[in-house]
């Protein structure tokens, strides 16, 4: 008795039950009935390489129960292309289950599922989406709205970001991305994913992905100087709203690296947030870190060492070994515990 065994649509098929590897196996499988039945029909359909509407429906059913089962996704994608299905319709279905999955994760997975299982489900949907999308010539107008909904749930979801970058490359969406990134940073200036994406749309577009040239410190003559200046100004403004925020400080170092001019030009900017003479008023440990490098660039070893000492002793003591290492590079002795 079951959904498939009772259906006339599937009566020509002999389900193939799970072969769990012999008596008392290490990982014998205990399925609930509904899932187990659906899986036995899936095995039967796959065994004869069936490509049909009913098999598509079957994969949909199994994905509903277990979105982290990769075999079923592969089979489904294969059928979609063979049967020349409407891919926009597939996307629509994918949107629906993706959003539902985020919203009702506890319904899909009544117990807490290991993080890896959850991540796997995300990864498989993203991959399926990418496979489908790469067969569509122009980006469907609904796509950005869908991504906005996904980000509304979790704006740091690594899979969604990775998909978004793929999409930008695939459809060459470089110009429309920047305003979007700015709106994200406007609502949360600490969103490191958005800072990374900013870097991607501005600098990675100038990069030949087959050549190694993205690393910080490689001065890049292909990026116009006015863009470099604009990025420096933008980042300074972002730091002024929240000085103790590592993302823009990292970004600033990256941009200065692209410029190839060192950090010294931003010395007075950084000193606003960390004055070595006023130890109690330091507003940013990242400014201290930045200034330590500025002073070292200027051969002011003692000042540089003083900034590192403040970090080791007071502003970031959990990493005192790191700061002491930086002092040792200057030939200075360790700061005690």
């Amino acid at each position: 008795m079951g959904k498939y065994s009772d259906s006339t649509e599937w009566e020509d098929v002999d389900p193939i039950p799970q072969d769990d590897g012999g008596p008392n196996p290490l990982a014998a499988i205990a399925y609930t009935e509904e899932y187990s039945e659906a899986m036995s029909y899936l095995r039967a359909a796959m065994a004869k390489d069936e490509k049909s509407d009913r098999a598509l429906g079957l994969t949909e059913d199994i994905i509903r129960m277990n979105p982290a089962h990769y075999t079923v996704w592969l089979y489904r994608a294969d059928m979609l292309f063979t049967l020349q299905k409407d891919l926009l319709q597939e996307l629509e279905w994918l949107n629906k289950i993706s959003l539902k999955h985020i919203k009702n994760f506890q319904i899909w997975y009544p117990y807490h599922v290991p993080q890896a299982g959850k991540a796997e489900a995300y990864g498989l949907r993203r991959h399926h989406r990418q496979v489908v999308m790469s067969h569509i010539p122009t980006i469907p107008p609904t796509e950005t709205a869908f991504l906005a909904l996904m980000f509304a749930k979790d704006v740091k979801n690594y899979h969604v970001w990775s998909y978004r970058q793929w999409l930008v490359r695939q459809f060459s969406l470089w110009d429309s991305e920047l305003p979007y990134v700015e709106s994200l940073l406007q609502s949360d200036v600490r969103n490191n994913s958005a800072w990374n994406h900013r870097w991607f749309v501005i600098f990675a577009r100038h990069m030949d992905p087959t050549k190694h040239s993205i690393k910080n410190g490689d001065a890049d003559s292909e990026v116009p100087p006015e863009i470099i200046e604009r990025e420096i100004e933008y980042t300074k403004a972002a730091i002024s709203t929240a000085p103790q925020n590592q993302s823009p400080w990292n970004y600033l170092r990256g941009v200065l690296g692209k410029k190839g001019m060192g950090l010294v030009e931003l010395k007075s900017f950084a000193e606003q947030y960390a004055d070595l003479e006023k130890e109690d008023e330091v507003r940013s440990s990242h400014a201290l870190d930045f200034l330590a490098d500025v002073y070292a660039e200027e051969e002011q070893k003692e000042r540089s060492g003083r900034a590192l000492e403040l970090l080791a002793r007071r502003y970031d003591p959990i990493r005192k070994n790191y700061w002491n290492y930086r002092r040792s590079l200057l030939g200075l002795k360790q700061v005690g515990a």
Partner: peptide, 21 residues
């Protein structure tokens, strides 16, 4: 070479070239 392409401006590495550390 591929791994080097995954290196980021902040010193970390991402899942593919350009992805967040």
């Amino acid at each position: 070479t591929y791994i080097q392409n995954c290196a980021n401006f902040d010193g970390g590495y991402g899942v593919s070239p350009g992805a967040e550390s």
